[in-house]
Design a protein around this nucleic acid. Structure first.
Lengths: 155, 155
DNA sequence: GGTCTATTGTTGCAAATGCAACGATGCCTT
DNA sequence: AAGGCATCGTTGCATTTGCAACAATAGACC
């Protein structure tokens, strides 16, 4: 019987050599480091007892743009409608959002944030912001801006 | 009854304005565009009837480094051991790899690629390479190298 | 109005994932 | 050699996802 916490989700990262071709280098970097960075931030949120980033994103989208149709949330978060449907199921079950009928469209559901939801988002932000900055410390402000610009070109 | 294919996994992307703070810009870009790019490439592989990128990555790791312990595959692919265990289950069931006993470690399993596996990797590469380059066309070679360098700083 | 097609959100089902545990083996210390 | 801890790979279980369908509503066209 062992007492250590087994099965770390992110196993020890080996030193990794990128390919020579610049395009492949870029691709490999995106594929490897992107998810790893997300994982680190998600891990900090979870360690602080918070739900996943999705929840934050949904709450933030609503706070930014006002109550939203599920369709629009899906568009805003770039995920499929059925994913939104179930995400909102879970968030509603915990009282962070609520669905209301959509006056202009009988099919629609408008998602509102509750006071509890707004509070959660703020609490998450403290941890999220810190974790994000920590993960990005290796970059100067200028480099961060450059990185954002390069990625934005790929939209 | 409708004949179109419903529920596109990546709904119409709205024009998206990045925050002002450079660090947040970088983070949002990583969070949004990274997965979107991966998704586009994955979609092309799937459309061509191929399995997911994971399969390619596993086969390529083995081809590059020789038959690998599952532990090392996990390290190389940055995923948990139980994920590897099940990934290899599936790949073995389709005859692309096979597990053999590890001579130096009774616990170990060494994963070998089969001829069928090597063939699959090559076939996938044709599509993968093309899709990857297509997704990255907005970047010049120099920019691609820059992007890779910036992301690598974050390892 | 009536018909036809598209969109919205939901759901059943199968597959995949995360987590926590486990058996088996290796390794280190005594 | 023996005990104790660490590592390797696997698995049961609950949760989450992806896919394909669906009912309900909207909108366009005649």
């Amino acid at each position: 019987m062992q007492m250590q916490q087994d099965q770390a989700p992110q196993p020890a990262a080996k030193a990794f050599t990128l390919p020579k071709d610049p395009v492949q280098r870029a691709w490999v970097a995106i594929q490897r480091f992107g998810p790893a960075l997300l994982g680190r931030v998600e891990a900090e949120l979870k360690a602080a007892g918070f739900p996943a980033l999705e929840w934050y994103d949904a709450l933030w989208a609503i706070e930014r743009e006002g109550p939203l149709r599920q369709r629009d949330l899906a568009g805003s978060m770039l995920i499929a409608r059925y994913s939104i449907s179930r995400l909102i199921d879970r968030m509603e079950a915990e009282g962070f959002v609520e669905r209301r009928e959509c006056p202009e469209d009988g099919r629609g559901q408008v998602v509102h944030a509750t006071a509890k939801g707004l509070k959660l988002r703020k609490a998450m932000w403290a941890v999220y912001d810190k974790a994000m900055r920590q993960v990005l410390t290796p970059l100067s402000e200028k480099e961060a801006a450059q990185l954002a610009a390069l990625l934005a070109k790929l939209s």
